[in-house]
């Protein structure tokens, strides 16, 4: 299968995603510049991490107007798998492809560390190969990752099982100390109602090789490879 990795000015995890897709998983991968309007025939789209447009105004607020986002929107509407990682998650929220917003971390610090996240739902193209309750060790690197939404939207996300990843302790317990940024309901990642668009703050693509400290992120990318092949 082929991954399209969108590059905005200021993306800086595009090569991590490319490396994981191409060299670790042995799949095809192509960079797509944000001014392009095609997706290079890709089967899945990755909006990578970084600081698109310097995080001017709000994270992801300018990138959502890039020409490629209309193509991504259409690809998603047709059921194509789309994943936004970190800044990519912020872009998906600003674009309205996912619901909610990300605020400054509760203690205002840029957090660069490994965290544990629990897989809450496996009926998405990015978690199909995981088990419900599986705990993944993944790195985070963000200053604005505190998930926020209205009480009504949170209730609807929960009712529709759209919370896909939650921050947790090493043994999978929900506790405030394991919630690095103060996210509402410890939300680390969500999906859209159709379940084909997923966004998360942690970086699975940076946790695909033991030399990097964790291979737990592979299941996210391997899941979409399996989903596309199915």
């Amino acid at each position: 299968m082929k991954f399209a990795i969108i590059e905005f000015p200021g993306s800086n995890c595009d090569h991590d995603a490319y490396h994981a897709a191409k060299h670790v998983l042995g799949q095809q991968a192509a960079f797509v510049w944000h001014k392009d309007t095609g997706l290079a025939g890709a089967d899945a789209v990755v909006l990578p991490g970084g600081f698109s447009y310097g995080d001017y105004l709000r994270t992801g607020a300018i990138a959502r107007f890039s020409p490629v986002m209309e193509t991504v929107r259409q690809f998603a509407a047709e059921g194509g798998p789309v994943i936004g990682i970190c800044n990519g998650f912020q872009v998906l929220l600003e674009a309205g492809l996912l619901e909610g917003a990300l605020l400054r971390n509760r203690r205002l610090k840029f957090l660069c560390q490994h965290v544990h996240v629990r897989v809450e739902q496996t009926d998405t193209p990015f978690t199909g190969g995981a088990q419900v309750g599986q705990v993944l060790s993944l790195p985070i690197a963000h200053g604005e990752g505190s998930y926020h939404t209205t009480a009504e939207t949170l209730a609807s996300l929960e009712a529709n099982r759209q919370v896909i990843f939650r921050y947790c302790s090493q043994d999978g317990a929900m506790q405030d100390a394991a919630n690095p940024n103060g996210s509402l309901a410890a939300v680390a990642g969500i999906c859209n109602p159709e379940r084909n668009v997923v966004g998360l703050m942690p970086h699975p693509e940076r946790a695909c090789e033991s030399a990097l400290g964790s291979e737990d992120g592979r299941v996210v990318l391997e899941s979409v490879v399996a989903a596309v092949a199915a």
Binding site: L57, R58, A61, L93, E94, E99, G100, A101, L103, H148, T149, T150
Partner: peptide, 8 residues
């Protein structure tokens, strides 16, 4: 449309 995010 741009200056404010109505969610927050």
């Amino acid at each position: 449309k741009l200056l404010a995010n109505p969610v927050i």
